[in-house]
Amino acid sequence: MIILAATPIGNLGDATRRLVEALENATVVAAEDTRTTQRLLAGLGIENRPRLIALHDHNEKQRAGELVALAREEDVLVLSDAGMPTISDPGYGLVAAAVEAGVTVTALPGPSAVLTALAIAGLPTDRFTFEGFVPRKEGERAQAFAALAAERRTMVFFESPQRIAATLDDLATAFGADRRAAVCRELTKLHEEVLRGTLAELADRVRAGVRGEIVLVVAGSSARGIPFPDAVTHVLELVRDGARLKAAAAEVSAETGHSSRELYQAALAVRG
């Protein structure tokens, strides 16, 4: 069978007993980075040295058939560098190929950066959406955020420390500066840190630079399906028709569910 195994996202103490047992008995391990897997074996004090096969984004299509064939004869343990394989990591193509071939697929659950960040962010957890890595290009990032502006569920993103400030700025533009969020850094590690506040506040706090792996959690919209930029445009239209800005913001807030203060500030900024 194919066995997807979650590995620690930082602290080796989070390795499950089932993961340790699987590594002690594995004969074949498909690993996102074989060097990372070797360090994991050493860190957990495991003397077993299984056959390591690299399985990453650039070779998964070519390797899937080979691994599925192997899994007909023996168990193939699949590892990503951290967390659960297939979740913004290699493995989906292999799983799809195994399912199509009638090969059993199972999982050893364990650490998850997505769920850990969601649990400690202090934002609603009843419904959420995982959006994966934020697009690198500015235009694609703006387009993606515009499409999510009316999303009611809490959103979870992966982002690099080099781009987190720019991403928070773009989110503030698309969602409104006062939308609540949390920047979760170095989860489960020695220097774990969670920064909570509005998108604008967080952008200012990380502008000087941050280090480590980051999971960004953003509150969903309270609006009734109307994107924030469209609501701001409506406020400006009412003002052009003679309404006072404060009154226009309050009216559109009542219609859309967006914050009256956010609408007022955004419209004021557009007017200059």
Rank of each mutant, 00 (worst) to 15 (best):
R63A: 10
A174M: 00
T167G: 04
G197A: 12
R224T: 01
E24P: 07
A96V: 15
L199F: 00
L19F: 10
N59G: 12
A219H: 08
F130W: 06
R196V: 03
F128S: 12
A117F: 00
F133N: 04
D204Y: 00
S253D: 12
P85W: 05
R211P: 02
T106N: 04
L148C: 01
A54R: 14
A182E: 11
A150C: 10
N48P: 10
A250F: 11
R205I: 05
R17Y: 13
T154H: 06
R136Q: 08
R244E: 13
G212L: 07
T7R: 09
D230H: 07
V215K: 07
L199M: 05
A249G: 14
A231D: 03
A243F: 05
V156F: 01
V105P: 01
A107V: 14
R271Y: 06
G43I: 08
P227H: 05
P227I: 07
R63T: 09
L123G: 12
R244M: 10
A107N: 10
A172H: 00
A69N: 08
A181Y: 00
G110Q: 11
D170W: 04
R205H: 07
E193V: 09
A150Q: 03
G225D: 01
L238P: 05
A247V: 15
P90V: 11
R127D: 10
A117N: 10
A98T: 05
K61F: 08
A200W: 00
G176N: 03
M84W: 00
F130A: 02
I46A: 14
G272Q: 04
L199W: 02
E201C: 03
A249C: 14
G65P: 04
G45E: 08
T27Y: 07
V270A: 12
Y264F: 15
R136M: 05
R35F: 13
L190F: 14
T233C: 02
A150E: 05
A54E: 14
Q38C: 08
L94N: 03
L94S: 02
I2T: 09
T233V: 11
V76N: 01
A203Q: 02
E21Q: 15
P135G: 10
L236E: 01
S260D: 15
A166R: 06
L4P: 04
E138R: 15
L52D: 10
G209K: 02
D89L: 11
S253Q: 14
S221D: 03
S260H: 15
V156I: 07
L199R: 02
R163W: 13
A42P: 07
L148H: 05
A174I: 01
D126S: 15
A181G: 05
G225Y: 01
A69G: 05
R153D: 08
V215T: 12
T116E: 13
V68E: 00
S160W: 00
V206Y: 00
G272T: 06
D170R: 02
N48E: 13
R153Y: 04
L118D: 12
A208L: 11
T27M: 08
E192Y: 14
T27F: 09
R207K: 06
A267E: 07
V78P: 04
A31F: 10
D230M: 12
A22E: 11
T198F: 00
V68G: 04
V20M: 11
C184R: 13
L12A: 09
S259H: 10
L148Q: 06
E131K: 04
D81G: 03
R127P: 03
L263I: 04
